[in-house]
Write a protein that binds this DNA or RNA. Sequence first.
DNA 1: ACGATAAGATACATGACTGTAGCTAACTTG
DNA 2: CAAGTTAGCTACAGTCATGTATCTTATCGT
Lengths: 198, 198
Amino acid sequence: MAEGPTRRRGKALLDAIYTAAVDEAAASGPGRLTMDAIAKRAATPRSTLYRRWSDPLDLLLDALADRHPVEQPAPGADDLRGDLVAALRLMVEWGFSPAGRAVMAILGDPARDPRVVEALWERVFDRRGGTFTQTVLRHYASRGALDPARLTPVVLDIGEAMVTKRMLDTGAAPDDDYLAAIVDQAILPAVGLGPAPA
Amino acid sequence: MAEGPTRRRGKALLDAIYTAAVDEAAASGPGRLTMDAIAKRAATPRSTLYRRWSDPLDLLLDALADRHPVEQPAPGADDLRGDLVAALRLMVEWGFSPAGRAVMAILGDPARDPRVVEALWERVFDRRGGTFTQTVLRHYASRGALDPARLTPVVLDIGEAMVTKRMLDTGAAPDDDYLAAIVDQAILPAVGLGPAPA
DNA sequence: ACGATAAGATACATGACTGTAGCTAACTTG
DNA sequence: CAAGTTAGCTACAGTCATGTATCTTATCGT
C-alpha cells in the first residue's frame, strides 16, 4: 500500500491548524476559543500549538491573517449600481465565511482587547486596499461618473454598515433584493445620484 | 446600631443579581458568562441562582428585559436634523451601557442560538415602539415634513446601522460631529432632503 | 546515511465551573 | 406567634482547559 507521509509538517500542518482555529472560532465564538479545542480539531497535540503561540487568540489572529486575501470587487464598465450590488454580495459572502464570523465576534466582544483589534486591522484588513463598496465608488469617481467630494468616510461606509447591521439583526445573509434596496435607497442618494429631493 | 435587614429577598435580591449579570456580561462577554461569576459578583450562593434559572444566558435575558426601558427620543418642534442627531446620541449612550454591550455581544456571537436572539427581540426590543431614528422620522413624516414613501425599512435603519458599524470599528463612542455627518451625508439625502443630485 | 528538527503520544498537577445536595437561620405570611 | 418559605453557607464529585514536561520516531537538510 503506497502510503503518503504519516506526519504533517510545515505548511501542511499550519494549514490544518489555521483551519481548525478559524472553524472553532466560528463555531464557539472567540470567547470560548481554547487551545484544547483547536488541538483536538486539528488532531495535533497541544504541545505543538504551545510551541508557537501562547494563547488561542494569538493563534487565531495568525490564522485570520493567513486566510484573508478576500476576493476584490472588480468594477466593470458602466454599471455603478450593478457593481455596488456585486460588491455588497462579496461582502455578504465573506461575512458568512468562518473568518467573517470570527471577526464579527471579535469586534462585538465587549471584553475586547484594544491591542487585539489593532492587530486585527494591521494583520488582516490593512493589506487590502479599502473595503468593498469603497473600491467601486472610488473607481467611478475617478472616471468622473460621480462627485469625489461626496465620498466622505461616512458615505464610503454606508453599504458596509447596512449589511453589517442586517446580518447582526437577522443572522442571515441579505438577499439580492435587500442589497439592491441598500444601493438604491441609501448609497446612491448619498452620492448624489438618487431620486431628486422633494 | 440600627441595622437593616441582613438578608436580601425578592426584588432587592433580584435587582442585585440582574445588575451582576449585566455587568458581568459586559465585562467578560456573554460567551464567558458563568453562573459562578454572577453569583460571586452578586455575593449570593450559586444555589440561589440555580433555583430560578438553568443557565447564565437565561438569567441574562431576564436581566436585560428588566433593565430595558430605554429613554425614547422626544422629537421637538421643527428641527428634524437636530432631533435626528439627538436620537443617535441616545443610541450611542445605550450602546455603551453594560446592557448595550451585552446585547451587541449576543448578536455578534457566531454561536448564537436563534432562540436566544428571538427571545431577545421578544423580551427586550419589541416592547419599545421602534428604534431611535425611526421614531423621529415617522414623527416628521406624519407632520408632512417629509415623504412617508421614502421611509422604507432600509432608510429607517441607516442611522442605527452607521452608528453600530462605527462602534464596532472603533470601539469608541462617535462624537457629535460624526453623528451630524451621518445625518447630513446619509440620512437626509436618503429621505430626499439632502443636497441636490449632481 | 546521518543528525537535527519537530510532530506525535503520553502524563500530571492545578484551577475554574458545574450541578446537586443538605443544613441553618432570617424573613414573610396567615 | 407559628409555620412556611427561601437566602445564605458549605461541601462534593465530575468535567474541562491549562501549562509543562517527558519520550518516541517520522521527516528534512546536508
